[in-house]
């Protein structure tokens, strides 16, 4: 198997007495979808926050293409090619859908100390953004202020913004959160189509989605990884079964 694209080595994150990340070592390989599952409070979002640079770990290392990025700030990581979506929708609410994606495109076109040309009339920003929105089916909503989008549309926009910079790794924090069954199915199809083109870390509660998409799964309980393996291996793992997956879930 190819070397890891993004990995953590013995990562720890403590909040006072609480150990949110406990000796976590995971590796996301190029092109794979690596799912991170676990019960509420297992430290999944904390792990994503550390990978994206939003939170600094207490101890341990984070490597991107073999390079230590543990102390690197979030914007620098984003420009390197580590993009993320947020569990709680985080878009620019008073901008249009197209503005949001265009800003994401802009972030990857060098510095923005450009004071004169109108950014909203700049085809090098607007065209790629429009293209992406059309691919995602959000094209007709391009000129709507994002605060007026439906929840599902906002979730799709989250993904569009993460994708717009053509990232090497996508960190997806519960992309299906709050979606209806139909929207979820659409999202699964969409992520399936993306598969292979870039590596993804998928944090998700929807087990149907996880088992449909993931190449490998890491199970997190109280901040610690209790198992990593293919979906079949995880399904067969007795410890995982005890700690987390109910019998009903396993049918999936």
């Amino acid at each position: 198997m190819a070397d890891a694209l993004l990995e953590t080595k013995s990562l720890f994150k403590r909040f006072g007495g609480l150990v949110a990340t406990d000796n976590l070592t995971i590796a996301i390989r190029p092109g794979e979808i690596h799912a991170l599952i676990g019960p509420n409070g297992a430290g999944k979002s904390t792990a994503v926050a550390q990978l994206s640079g939003q939170l600094a770990p207490t101890a341990g290392h984070i490597l991107f293409e073999g390079r230590d990025i543990t102390r690197m700030r979030m914007p620098t990581r984003a420009r390197l090619g580590i993009a993320r979506s947020f569990q709680i929708t985080s878009v620019l609410k008073d901008f249009t859908t197209l503005d949001n994606v265009a800003l994401s495109v802009q972030a990857h076109q060098g510095h923005s100390f450009r004071f004169w040309k109108n950014a909203r009339k700049d085809p090098t920003l607007r065209d790629p953004a429009s293209l992406l929105l059309n691919e995602l089916g959000l094209g007709p909503r391009a000129d709507v202020i994002t605060a007026e989008l439906s929840h599902g549309e906002q979730r799709q926009l989250e993904i569009a913004m993460a994708l717009a910079g053509d990232p090497r790794v996508l960190l997806l924090d519960e992309p299906m959160a709050g979606m209806g069954p139909e929207e979820s199915t659409q999202m699964v199809t969409f992520l399936k189509n993306l598969k292979g083109s870039r590596a993804m870390l998928l944090v998700e509660h929807d087990m149907d989605a996880v088992f449909a998409l993931a190449d490998r799964i890491t199970v997190l309980v109280y901040g610690r990884a209790i198992a990593t393996g293919t979906p079949e291996e995880i399904r067969a793992n007795a410890e995982v079964r005890d700690a987390y997956l109910g019998a009903d879930d396993m049918v999936a």
């Binding site: 620019l92 972030a107 909203r120 910079g165």
Partner: peptide, 23 residues
């Protein structure tokens, strides 16, 4: 209305998101 202005206004709207986008 320039690229710079969009970054400035974006940061007013949602600073964390702008950081996560790479600004």
């Amino acid at each position: 209305n320039s690229r710079f202005g969009m970054v400035l206004r974006g940061a007013k709207s949602n600073e964390t998101r702008m950081l996560a986008l790479g600004f």
